[in-house]
Nucleic acid binder design. Structure first.
Lengths: 280, 280
DNA sequence: GCTGGCATTTTCATTGGGTGGAACACTAGT
DNA sequence: ACTAGTGTTCCACCCAATGAAAATGCCAGC
């Protein structure tokens, strides 16, 4: 199996703002960059906004958008603005690491949620971040920083630490060598402490993070394994600091994570032979 | 098995030429048709399978897929097969009619779920079908026909009837003129009865469907309105036939739907001035 | 009504990205 | 060794993609 990779950056992440005469770029990349202009804060955009953010002339954008709308990847509102379409959401729901794990994990998450009545999170790793796959929240639960579909740093969240601890050595090293995150409300971890923490996570199967913003909370996370023993996801519970002691939560979190893992085909006997997998 | 349908649907303006369905098709349509090959049953496909189903030569497929993978719309497994990627799922989560309503409705759905311990569904309409946005199920709940991200017929499901009743007149007519669905386990409704049913739904704000497959169940659905009074979604509860009488469920379902509607900015005073909106 | 400014859409000559057949490498089954 | 299936690279042809320019639509302000 040849990697066939090495054009990684071709997915032009964020062209900042400057106008780039990016002519000669593959059409698909342009079309995808039109999808990438949507963010949590910008869910409905006009043609010119999309063209501007994607860095292409309006006529070109219009032509591409027209095709995306015809297919259903985008939808056009009455006021002329564009939003992400259900059709795209529909195929995206077939993503194994997206809705896939969610589908299997949800009933168990719900049990945990119902007992505790606190936020329950499910996340997977993509590139160098954790992506929030699911979040159960009662209406009166404490404020929480991340939304479903959003990204969170690996080094300063409980789920992130679990995912990082479960990643392959090369990837871990690359992350470890980066300067500490400056996540507001979370004490930044220097490299040495982070190494110890990861080792602890690996040993205990539990990660904890205390954060002071947007409110004082403690998160307790545990890894979810697939049949091969790879860490494919992490689940965590977020409680107000001082409410329930973490050492009470840990068993519940770990038990729930195990239940999900078992449902993914993970045999607990292999627990010591956990293997890691590589990724971008 | 035949290659089924090699003309990638494309949703393009009617191929006036109609001469060459393959060559000369816009690149974006081809790329999108590569995404469309994934279905509930086919979540991981090889290159040749994708090429075959999308109706294009392998080299072409490979080139396009490479770009999709670079961006994250697809991911490649260790065994070489491709699956839908989290990145795609991520932008799809910004779909207002997908995760958007879900985000707002979920806490209320959970309340309803917790009280009843039966399936709770949330659906929106896309084209001529209902798309399941959310489904809460306890592990021991009865078997249910549809999965999240899947599509259900408008005329033979409770949520479908609600969405159909809330659609604009033109669209309703088009659907009404079609021959009755032949949905297994559901008594097909002739046009006259369907018209009466829709009128009832519009008046009472409740739709009911009894089905015998995959198990004997009764569904009770109610509409969710946005600030403009448009029906944007439908929620329903599915219970085993004979367990809880529907007239007991109806108030709970209606109350939950109202709570969600209110959260979307819907003023109940406008309840009689419901407006309809058009779509594809 | 008129005018200017902005967003959206259409037109169209130019050209470079897209194309897919052919050949290749590789594996598994016979 | 042979066949049949996959995944991959190569490359000469050429049509779809391109974006400036202009036309159109849309308001707000005068």
């Amino acid at each position: 199996m040849a990697p066939t990779d090495n054009t990684a950056d071709a997915a032009a992440p964020a062209p900042a703002r400057g106008k780039r005469p990016k002519q000669g770029e593959p059409v698909i990349d342009r079309a995808l960059s039109l999808l990438a202009v949507f963010t949590d804060r910008r869910r409905a955009l006009t043609l010119s906004e999309m063209a501007r953010h994607a860095g292409m002339p309006a006529p070109t954008a219009l032509r591409l958008i027209a095709r995306l709308v015809a297919w259903g990847a985008l939808e056009r509102l009455n006021d002329g603005r564009y939003v992400v379409g259900v059709r795209l959401w529909e195929v995206a729901s077939l993503s194994p690491r997206g809705h896939g794990v969610r589908e299997i994990a949800l009933p168990y998450l719900e049990d945990l949620f119902e007992v505790t009545r606190h936020h329950v999170l499910l996340a997977v790793r993509d590139k160098e971040q954790a992506v929030l796959i699911e979040r159960l929240s009662s209406k009166q639960a404490t404020e929480v920083a991340y939304r479903v579909g959003g990204r969170a740093p690996l080094r300063s969240t409980a789920v992130g630490l679990v995912l990082l601890a479960g990643a392959d050595a090369d990837f871990q090293e690359r992350i470890l060598r980066q300067p500490p995150d400056i996540e507001p409300g979370v004490a930044p971890m220097p490299e040495g402490q982070l190494r110890r923490t990861l080792s602890d996570v690996h040993r205990t199967g539990i990660a904890m993070i205390r954060r002071s913003l947007p409110s004082l909370t403690v998160s307790v996370a545990a890894p979810i394994f697939d049949a091969q023993g790879t860490v494919v996801a992490a689940l965590s519970i977020v409680v107000p600091d001082g409410s329930t002691p973490p050492n009470v939560l840990a068993p519940a979190v770990r038990a729930t994570a195990r239940a999900v893992s078992r449902n993914l085909g993970f045999k607990t006997e292999l627990a010591d032979d956990v293997r890691t997998h590589s990724q971008g």
